[in-house]
C-alpha cells in the first residue's frame, strides 16, 4: 500500500496523463463487458440481460455439434499464421527497399501505388476475383486456354485457396503494414549508418546489422498483435472471395464465416456471443503464453 502511494506521488503527472485513455476505455470497453454473460443466458428482451435465465453452456453446443468447430478453428489459426508470415515479411522487405532505393520519384509513386488496395473494399475485390477465376469466361482460364493448357475450376478446387487467400490478403495489407516499418526505419539514428559507411559496410550488411536490429521491437510488437487475433478471421475477405460455396469450405471456412452461416437463419444473440467468447478465451490463452516467452527473452518487446 505504501509502495503504491509512493509510486502515485512520484509519478503523479504520468498518471494524470494516463487518465483520459484509462477513463475512456473504462467507459467504452469495460462497462459493456457485462454483456459477456449473454453467452451463458437464454436471452429474453423483456427480462433484460440480467433477468434472463441461465443457459449454462447450451449456447456453445452448435459450434461442436457437427464437428465443424474444430475444422474451422484449425483453418482460422493456419490462415492467420500464413497471412502473418507473408504479409509481415513482405512489408518489412518493401519498407527496407523503399528506404534505400535510389530514385525519389519512383520511390514516391510505387509507395503510393502499393497503398491503393487498402481502399478497395472486399465486395469489389470479390467481383474482380470472380472475373478472374470463373470457369467459363474468367481471365485465368482465358490465359490458360490461349497457352493450350487445361482450364482449372478454381471454385471447385479447395486446395488452391490456400494460395489464393494469402495472396489477396498480402496484396491488400502489405502497403498498409509497410508504412509502420517505414516509420520505424525513419526513426533510426543516421549516425549508425554513417559510422557503418566509414567501416566500409555494404548495403546488405547495413540492412542486417543496423536496420533489422533497430526495428526489432516494432517487428515483435506487430507479430504479437497479430498473434493476439489468431482466432479471428477476416469475415469480409473470406465471405466476399468465396461466397457460400460449400465445395470449398474444407479449405476456406473460418470461425467467423461458419458462425455467420449457422446463425443467419433464426439468428440468436446469445449464440453469437458464445462463439465470440470462445474466440476470446483461446486468443487470451495463446497471447499470454507467447507474451510470457517474449518477456523472458526480450522484456522491452513484450506487449505487457
Amino acid at each position: 500500500m505504501n509502495n503504491f502511494l509512493m509510486e502515485m506521488k512520484k509519478n503523479r503527472m504520468l498518471y494524470i496523463m494516463l487518465l483520459p485513455a484509462v477513463l475512456l476505455v473504462l467507459l467504452l470497453n469495460y462497462l459493456p463487458m457485462a454483456g459477456i454473460i449473454l453467452a451463458f443466458k437464454n436471452f429474453r428482451y423483456n427480462l433484460g440481460i440480467w433477468g434472463s435465465e441461465w443457459a449454462g453452456l447450451r449456447n456453445f453446443r452448435f459450434f461442436f455439434l457437427s464437428g465443424t468447430g474444430w475444422m474451422v478453428t484449425r483453418n482460422t489459426i493456419l490462415y492467420n499464421l500464413i497471412n502473418l508470415l507473408t504479409t509481415q515479411l513482405l512489408a518489412i522487405i518493401i519498407a527496407i527497399v523503399l528506404n534505400d532505393i535510389r530514385g525519389r520519384l519512383f520511390k514516391k509513386l510505387s509507395q503510393s501505388a502499393i497503398f491503393l488496395p487498402y481502399f478497395i473494399s472486399w465486395i469489389i475485390v470479390g467481383v474482380f476475383a470472380y472475373n478472374i477465376f470463373n470457369y467459363e469466361s474468367g481471365l485465368l482460364n482465358g490465359a490458360l486456354k490461349a497457352l493450350g493448357a487445361k482450364p482449372v475450376n478454381v471454385y471447385a478446387e479447395p486446395s488452391l485457396w490456400w494460395l489464393i487467400i494469402p495472396s489477396f490478403n498480402a496484396w491488400k495489407w502489405v502497403g498498409y503494414t509497410s508504412v509502420i516499418y517505414i516509420a520505424a526505419i525513419t526513426g533510426i539514428d543516421p549516425e549508425c549508418y554513417e559510422s557503418a559507411d566509414i567501416d566500409g559496410a555494404n548495403i546488405f550488411q547495413k540492412t542486417f546489422y543496423i536496420t533489422l536490429p533497430s526495428i526489432r521491437t516494432t517487428i515483435i510488437i506487430m507479430l504479437l498483435l497479430s498473434i493476439g487475433r489468431i482466432l479471428r478471421g477476416d469475415f469480409q475477405m473470406f465471405y466476399q472471395l468465396v461466397g457460400n460455396n460449400g465445395q470449398l469450405f474444407s479449405a476456406t471456412d473460418v470461425i467467423d464465416t461458419f458462425v455467420f452461416r449457422s446463425l443467419v437463419t433464426g439468428g440468436d444473440l446469445s449464440m453469437s456471443s458464445a462463439a465470440t467468447f470462445y474466440q476470446s478465451v483461446l486468443c487470451f490463452l495463446i497471447i499470454v503464453l507467447v507474451n510470457g516467452v517474449v518477456r523472458r527473452v526480450d522484456p522491452d518487446s513484450a506487449l505487457f
Binding site: L31, M33, A34, G35, L38, I49, S272, S273, F277
Partner: peptide, 12 residues
C-alpha cells in the same frame, strides 16, 4: 490490451 481480446458484444 485486454479490451482487444474480450468485448461485451454488440448489444451491451
Amino acid at each position: 490490451y485486454f479490451t482487444t481480446l474480450f468485448s461485451g458484444g454488440l448489444l451491451s
